[in-house]
Computed example of a mutant assay.
Amino acid sequence: MGLAQAVRAVANTHDVYEELRRRPIDVVLVDVNLATPDPVHFTREVRQRSRGTAVVMAGPTDPRTAAMVVAAGARGVIRSASADNDDLLVALTQAIMLVCPQVAAQGLPRQRAAMASRSNLTTREMQVLRGMSEGKSNAEIGRDLFVSEDTVKTHARRMFRKLGARDRAHAVAEAFRAGIVH
C-alpha cells in the first residue's frame, strides 16, 4: 500500500511486544488468529505495555468475542466473513484507512503514471470496484447491480487489466492508493 515507512509486519505476539518495547506505536492492527487463543488477553497486554497504542483486530470472529475485545480496550474489530485472504486484505486495507487517515494521507503515493484514472473505468467497473472495496462477494455485487455473477466477473477482469491488478485485494489497494475509491 505504499506504507513501508509507517507499517511493520510481525509473525507472532512475541514480536508485537518486542516492537512495542523498541519504539512508540500508534496502532497495532492484528489478525484475530494471531492473537489466539485469547484475543482479550492480547488486547489487555498491548494496552498495558503501551497505553497510547490503539488496538484494532481484523478477521473472522464471533460477535461475543469482538465485544469482549473492545471492552478490553481495543478500538474496534473489523469482522470478515471468512479467513479468505481477499476478505482479510480488504478488511485490513479499510482498517488502515479508517484508523490512520493521517498516515495513509502522508504515506500513500499519489496516482502512478501507469495507473488507470477514474475516467478509464466504465460506470459498471466502478460499481464492481466499489462493491469489492466494501468487502462484498461477486454474488452480492451481482445482486446489488441486478446482473449475474458471471457478468460481475467479466467486469472485474476488465477492471483488473485496466488497474494492472492481480486480484480483488490488489485492485482495491490500487484504487485506494489512486484515490479512485475512499
Rank of each mutant, 00 (worst) to 15 (best):
A4R: 13
Q5P: 01
A6D: 15
A6M: 10
V7R: 08
A9Q: 11
V10R: 09
A11W: 06
V16Q: 09
V16C: 08
E18R: 10
E18I: 12
E18K: 09
L20K: 03
R22T: 02
V27T: 03
L29K: 00
V30G: 09
V30L: 15
F42M: 09
F42K: 00
V46G: 01
R47A: 06
Q48Y: 07
R49T: 02
A54E: 14
V56D: 09
P60G: 09
T61W: 06
D62W: 11
P63T: 08
P63E: 14
A67W: 02
A67T: 06
M68D: 13
V77W: 09
V77N: 08
A81L: 10
S82L: 01
A83M: 07
D86W: 10
L89S: 12
A91F: 06
L92V: 14
T93A: 13
A95F: 05
I96Q: 10
V99D: 07
Q102D: 15
V103E: 08
V103L: 14
A104I: 02
A105N: 08
G107V: 03
G107L: 11
G107T: 05
L108M: 11
R110T: 11
Q111K: 15
A113D: 10
A114L: 10
N120S: 15
T122E: 08
T123L: 06
E125T: 00
Q127F: 01
V128D: 07
R130M: 05
M132N: 05
M132D: 05
S133D: 08
E134A: 13
E134F: 04
G135V: 01
S137H: 02
R143I: 01
R143E: 14
D144T: 05
D144N: 12
D144C: 01
L145P: 00
L145R: 04
S148E: 11
S148Q: 11
D150R: 15
T154P: 00
A156W: 06
M159V: 02
L163G: 01
G164Y: 11
A171V: 02
V172C: 04
V172P: 01
F176L: 15
I180P: 01
V181E: 08
V181R: 07
H182S: 12
